[in-house]
Design a protein around this nucleic acid. Structure first.
Lengths: 257, 257
DNA sequence: CACAAAATGTTAGAAAAATAACACTTGATG
DNA sequence: CATCAAGTGTTATTTTTCTAACATTTTGTG
């Protein structure tokens, strides 16, 4: 990819970063090049953008992500995430202030916030912020810091403190690893501070993790299972957890989507 | 529209209610009918769903909005902005830490950061952050706060302080109004704190404003003209300013793109 | 059951988009 | 200045999607 191509892509991405589509012909006119060149730019963008019926869209735009692609099994988790989030969304009430964790798991939850109720979302993830910024009924509180491309999120020294100074009702956490004895973990250490801050700050903590994450331990440990009030999961794992005898009142409630 | 068609539509709508697309063939298989029937269902859905390149998408979603509909105003200034930014980009050196202001003026500047040199960008604007996050050679430092859709940026009480705690080399500022006697101004008051912080923190301040902004005073004043080291502008205004007798050494250098 | 009406399926052709091939332009380099 | 290579534009071809027409099946009714 050459530099002019990069400039064109950046410009188109800017136009598309808040959602929507651009007709291929429009994009060509906008950049002052031929449609063929835009096609080549998109092909060189390594999946950042894509063409959908002659229209340019951001590939990470949930609006245009394929829901069902039985030809490609790789997308099997997407459906599961949608179901999990649909389930998790049941806890949200009008007026809530929600903390939403980074990653892709909770993106369907963000989409479900659209509506009449008035909400506030606190996040340190760029993809979450982008999605929330498009919802007129949701106030967005962004936690800044140094950007980590691996998780599309920001990290800073004082993030846990900053979160605890906010009045958060409900915290939605995603995880890369969930283990009954070894607790909940993620890949990146910079995620630990915001997750911990949000868990400690919120009245109610909801862990959303599909069954592929269970029994796995990732480098960055951040919470015990019993620190959560609710665990939303699916499949056999969920049934197993649910049947497990509750030792006491602090045990999380298990929800199987 | 008959009742079976309604049932199929409801089913597909449910699948798409949280965003995403379904391939026409998948939808047909899912409903156990031919593709033609799905086409007819969609046509009868009165704009609820639509087909985009053989994929089914929800059309009533705010995210489906063609971004550019031959928006002349946006485009007319764009070329000027590109030239201004090309000019402004000349000041950037390897290793710099740049503050980049909100708005659309400086977006071409961000695009031009791509390359081999290592840079750091500080910003409080969501659109800038999005663009920078795609550049592997640029570190991104995000300043968070409450989101303001009007300027796609964040505001917080302590932003000026937070900025001054950073080591910023060069500050690039955009403005909605530039007036020789009445100084530089913008529309939104929440932009004042970050702009002031960045102006005071940086070694070098560069104002980038096309000639349509000159002679205009906007509600939120934030700086005198002589607080800038460089003013990048274009057209007659630039020539005028350049010919103006420099009163002293503190006068900004005028650059006409 | 026969019939009509609606709904759906099939096929063929038109339109649009994606791909491929080749020609032209531009900018860098010796 | 010549040369080369990368980038871009143009054209032709293939593929896919869309539309329309007509055939077939299903549904409802007397």
């Amino acid at each position: 990819m050459n530099s002019r191509s990069a400039v064109r892509l950046a410009r188109l991405q800017e136009a598309l970063s808040r959602g929507g589509t651009i007709r291929l012909s429009e994009a060509a006119r906008l950049c002052g090049v031929s449609e063929m060149t835009i096609r080549r730019d998109v092909a060189a963008s390594e999946g950042v953008m894509m063409l959908l019926g002659g229209r340019l869209v951001m590939a990470d735009n949930p609006q245009y992500a394929p829901v069902y692609d039985l030809d490609e099994q790789q997308d099997s988790h997407h459906l599961a995430k949608q179901r999990l989030c649909q389930c998790a969304a049941g806890f949200i009430e009008d007026g809530d202030t929600l903390f939403i964790d980074c990653g892709t798991t909770l993106m369907p939850l963000v989409a479900s916030l659209a509506g009449d109720r008035s909400l506030t979302v606190v996040t340190y993830a760029l993809n979450v912020a982008n999605a929330v910024s498009r919802l007129p009924n949701v106030r967005l509180l962004m936690l800044g810091g140094l950007y980590h491309a691996s998780s599309q999120s920001f990290g800073s020294d004082d993030m846990a403190g900053a979160i605890q100074r906010l009045g958060i009702n409900k915290t939605f956490i995603s995880a890369a690893g969930v283990h009954v004895e070894r607790g909940v973990s993620c890949f990146h250490f910079h995620e630990v501070a915001p997750k911990r801050g949000a868990i400690e700050a919120a009245e109610q903590c909801i862990l959303v993790a599909d069954n592929s994450k269970f029994g796995i331990i990732r480098p960055a440990y951040f919470a015990r299972l019993d620190e959560f009030d609710v665990i939303v999961t699916n499949g056999e794992v969920g049934e197993c957890l649910r049947r497990r005898p509750s030792t006491d009142d602090t045990s999380p409630k298990i929800l199987v989507a």
